[in-house]
């Protein structure tokens, strides 16, 4: 995907106060370490992307934690299936590795998305998911910024889900 997509994605995320960093694979371990606030848990990312290089080994992240560790964690690290430029939206797939729990039951969600999985528009994102669902009957959350509510008399970030979100975009140039 083009750099233009990243910049629109980054701009949209910026409006949501979600930092987005474009990183190379060799920087991955360091960048994850910088993005997480311990205690941190994560899904096995190397398996999610089928790329051993993206393993979370060597980071402070506990991979595949127990439910109790999940509930005690501050940060959750998961992959994202897509990033959508015009809205700053992440498509978070629901997997049997419990990525839904890891991205939801934490204060701070760090999402890793590959630059090749960025699309310009919401419509393209939904079409992509639609095609996949037709095959896999899978599920995904279109997540845009942190959870929020205005039900208590003013806008508050961090309702039932994370209060903050951060995105790492993996470039393809290695």
């Amino acid at each position: 995907m083009s750099g233009a997509t990243f910049s629109s994605f980054e701009r949209s995320l910026g409006e949501l106060d979600v930092p987005a960093t474009r990183i190379k694979r060799e920087e991955f371990t360091n960048q994850v370490e910088e993005a997480v606030e311990p205690p941190a848990v994560g899904v096995p990312l190397g398996e999610t992307f089928d790329e051993p290089a993206l393993s979370l080994d060597g980071t402070p992240v506990t991979v595949d934690p127990t439910p109790v560790a999940l509930r005690e964690a501050t940060t959750g690290v998961t992959g994202a299936r897509l990033g959508i430029g015009d809205y700053g939206t992440l498509a978070l797939s629901l997997t049997d590795r419990a990525s839904e729990l890891v991205s939801l039951f934490v204060e701070h969600h760090v999402a890793v998305v590959r630059e090749r999985d960025l699309v310009d528009e919401m419509r393209t994102g939904i079409e992509t998911l639609g095609e996949e669902f037709a095959e896999t009957r899978g599920s995904a959350i279109l997540a845009t910024g942190p959870s929020a509510t205005a039900d208590m008399g003013a806008l508050v970030k961090g309702a039932h889900g994370p209060r903050t979100v951060e995105v790492l975009v993996l470039t393809e140039d290695d």
Binding site: V68, L94, T95, F133, S139, I141, T144, G145, P146
Partner: peptide
């Protein structure tokens, strides 16, 4: 857009966990 638009094809694949299990 709202924070979450869940596109769920239930039953979903998320494991059913015991939240007290350590």
């Amino acid at each position: 857009i709202t924070s979450y638009v869940s596109l769920l094809t239930p039953p979903v694949e998320t494991p059913v966990v015991d939240f007290d299990d350590d």
